[in-house]
Simulated assay, not measured.
Amino acid sequence: MLPTLVRRLAQAAKPQLNAAAANATKLKKVWPPDMKTMSTQQQLHFEKKYKRRVKLATARPQFDKAMQLAQLFTMALVVGYMALFMDWNGVPTPFDPLRENFYGFFGAFTKETKKLELREHHRPPQPESSD
C-alpha cells in the first residue's frame, strides 16, 4: 500500500480539460451572451425570455400552496388569540362583544361552572319561612 501511494504521488498530474473542450459538439450559442453587442431591443427580448424561463424552472406549486396555507393558519391563530384570550388590561377593544359571547357559551363547560351547578343541585331544600 505504501509503495503504491508513493508512486502515485510521484507521478505528474494529468492535464484537466475544461467543460467546453471536453464537449465534442460545437456550441450553437455563446453563453452568457455579450450584452454590449446587442441592440436595446434584443437585450429587452433576451431579458424577458430569460426571466420567463427562470420563473418556470423555479416554480414549486405544492410548496407555495403549503406556505400560503401555513401563513393563513398562523395569522388566524394569532388573531383568534388576540380576540379571545389576550389580556388587554381593561382597554376597550372591538373584540369585547365576541369575547363575551365566547365565554358565555364555553363558560358552561368549565370546571368552576360545573362545581356550582353540582352544589346547587345537591343543596338540601331550605324550609320556607312563613311570616
Rank of each mutant, 00 (worst) to 15 (best):
E100A: 09
L118H: 11
A13M: 03
T40L: 07
Q41A: 10
D34L: 01
D34A: 08
F105H: 07
S39N: 13
T74V: 05
T4P: 02
L72E: 09
F73H: 10
P33S: 03
K115P: 11
L77C: 10
E120K: 09
Q42R: 02
N23L: 03
K55F: 06
Q42A: 11
Q68I: 05
W88M: 02
E117V: 15
D64G: 01
L72S: 03
A24Q: 12
P3N: 02
F46Y: 12
T113Q: 14
T74I: 04
S129H: 12
R119Q: 01
L5N: 10
L2W: 06
K111S: 11
P124R: 15
Q126P: 05
A24K: 03
P32S: 03
F46W: 03
A20C: 09
F105L: 07
A21N: 12
P32R: 02
W31K: 12
L116K: 11
L56C: 14
F63P: 01
P127C: 11
L5M: 14
K114M: 07
S130P: 06
D96S: 09
A13G: 05
S130V: 09
H121V: 03
L9A: 13
R123K: 12
R53Y: 15
Y103K: 03
S39R: 02
E120H: 13
A12L: 10
